[in-house]
């Protein structure tokens, strides 16, 4: 039986690494919110979407899209899955989908600034320019050999996610791209 009185302290994935500002661009760690992977069971996609709408006010996102808004968002996260960011999932969702807590599994950063698109163009093989990748668009892609999720959350801002253990490399790669861009003038 426990003799520990003190609670364990929490450390964020990018602790000590962020924020940084380089050449008008800011990279910061997102506020840690509950994150739950929702993977609908067979034939449950529509039912899940309804339950999600009822409980959290957003539909299950189509491929390459995010629904909801800052603080309560559902980001398409690959084949037959989406990541609920913000709300603790309503237990009713469990009838329709495998729900898996991933609140600690991913490092989540936010890149903001006039040339955020140009930074990402140096890191991901996906066109993220606003003419094709608008607010609410998301992509599962590769970022310097890492599995990544990139979502446009504003006209000049992106949410970028990689597995938590890659946080230092993610910050390093983003900083390098930001520095190179800033130095071009």
């Amino acid at each position: 039986m426990a003799d520990v009185l003190k609670d364990l302290t929490a450390t964020s994935p990018c602790a000590g690494l962020l924020p940084v500002t380089i050449g008008g661009l800011t990279l910061s760690e997102a506020v840690q919110l509950p994150m739950t992977l929702m993977a609908p069971f067979k034939g449950q996609e529509a039912a899940l979407s309804h339950a999600l709408e009822a409980a959290h006010g957003m539909s299950f996102p189509a491929p390459n899209r995010a629904t909801g808004k800052a603080g309560a968002r559902a980001v398409w996260f690959g084949r037959a899955q989406a990541l609920l960011i913000g709300p603790v999932p309503d237990p009713a969702l469990a009838a329709h989908a495998a729900l898996t807590d991933l609140s600690d599994g991913w490092a989540v950063v936010r890149l903001e600034g006039e040339r955020a698109e140009d930074v990402l163009a140096r890191l991901v093989p996906v066109d993220v320019r606003i003419r094709v990748f608008k607010r609410g668009h998301t992509a599962r892609t590769e970022l310097k050999h890492m599995m990544a999720s990139v979502t446009r959350v504003g006209t000049k801002s992106f949410q970028i996610m990689v597995f938590r253990s890659f946080a230092a490399t993610l910050v390093h790669d983003l900083k390098t791209a930001m520095e190179g861009l800033a130095a071009r003038g």
């Binding site: 491929p63 390459n64 084949r79 093989p125 996906v126 992509a139 599962r140 892609t141 590769e142």
Partner: peptide, 11 residues
């Protein structure tokens, strides 16, 4: 079919 045309490195 889900993501659209992507570079070979992702596959």
């Amino acid at each position: 079919p889900l993501c659209g045309a992507r570079d070979r490195r992702e596959f």
